[in-house]
């Protein structure tokens, strides 16, 4: 919970313009990474799946980041890895938001029985020991990109659900909602017409934050060998670096550091955007 309270403290201190500037910095990082992902085939000097040189080469003019343990070009791996990391991050966040928004809407709109049951379930999900559960689930379901996405998605929806529920709780007692209901509007119509659109903005902030978290989790899973080790993601590059001893040799400089920095940059980019967005849209108390 430290990061949330940190955001809270910063909110009063940092002028809006600085938050905006950080937001734009984040947007710049994300745009750069998206560009890299889209144009990966153009940017990458080699096919990352092809063995193009001797294994364990140090960086040279031909291979700017050297080669990995079977002679694949590490720079190309890094560039193509952007695709996997961003895809997993974004799709897993979408999964989380769909679940989180649905649960949040229902729990907020029917706060009595259904709502409290749902929220207790959310509490349970929130207090589950996170990484161990993630590891168990990933190991149980097997290794594939889809499973990685699903596992991350179904574990990070609880926080967005709480945020959305609190907004819905406040919305449902607004006068226009009450008016609409007193005129006989059905619940479904009220939710779709009056509530959902007003939560969408709040959901955007949660979404960007979830992307940031999902990218880190994908890297963590792949690093532990629980992702698909044949997929070229940043985490799997680190997995191979670790299993072939690069952490103990000078190779860490070109094999471990670049994907590590890339993971950091991607996560930071989305986190900065989320910070700026939340700064604008979060209801002030």
């Amino acid at each position: 919970m430290t990061s949330r309270s940190l955001t809270g403290t910063l909110r009063g201190v940092i002028p809006r313009s600085l938050a905006d500037r950080l937001g734009w910095l984040g947007a710049g990082i994300v745009a750069f990474l998206l560009g890299t992902a889209v144009f990966a085939p153009v940017l990458a000097p080699f096919d990352p799946a092809e063995r193009v040189a001797r294994p364990f080469l140090a960086p040279s003019a031909d291979h700017l980041l050297g080669t990995n343990d079977v002679g694949q070009d590490l720079l190309s791996e890094l560039i193509y890895g952007t695709r996997v990391s961003l895809t997993v991050g974004i799709v897993a966040a979408v999964v989380a938001m769909v679940i989180g928004t649905t649960v949040g809407l229902i729990a907020g709109y029917y706060p009595k029985r259904l709502g409290s049951v749902l929220m207790r379930f959310v509490d349970v999900v929130l207090i589950l020991p996170f990484l161990p559960l993630l590891i168990v689930l990933a190991a149980y379901l097997g290794r594939s990109l889809t499973n990685t996405i699903v596992v991350i998605g179904v574990l990070i929806w609880a926080a967005p659900a709480r945020i959305i529920r609190s907004q819905v709780l406040s919305l449902r007692s607004r006068e226009y909602v009450l008016a609409s209901r007193s005129m006989g509007a059905k619940d479904r119509w009220v939710i779709m017409r009056h509530i959902l659109p007003r939560t969408a903005l709040l959901a955007t902030g949660s979404f960007v934050r979830a992307v940031s978290g999902a990218i880190l989790l994908e890297a963590a899973l792949s690093f532990l060998g629980l992702g698909d080790p044949i997929q070229k993601s940043w985490g799997s590059t680190l997995f191979w670096a670790q299993s072939r001893g690069a952490f103990l040799t000078p190779a860490w400089k070109w094999w471990v550091l670049p994907p590590g920095l890339a993971i950091m940059a991607a996560s930071l980019g989305f986190a900065l955007i989320a910070f700026a967005v939340e700064e604008r849209i979060n209801p002030k108390l």
Binding site: M1, T2, S3, R4, L126, F130, L131, L155, I156, A159, R209, S212, G213, L216, L217, A219, A220, F223, L238, F247, L248, T249, P250, W252, K253, V256, L257, G260, I263, M264, S267, A271
Partner: peptide
């Protein structure tokens, strides 16, 4: 946020390992 701080700690640990190991090899 729970997940973010956990993941951040993991990344921190990973980078610490990298730093620790580098000192092994150079010295």
């Amino acid at each position: 946020m729970r997940l973010r701080s956990r993941a951040a700690i993991l990344l921190l640990v990973m980078s610490l390992i990298a730093v620790a190991c580098s000192s092994e090899t150079t010295d």
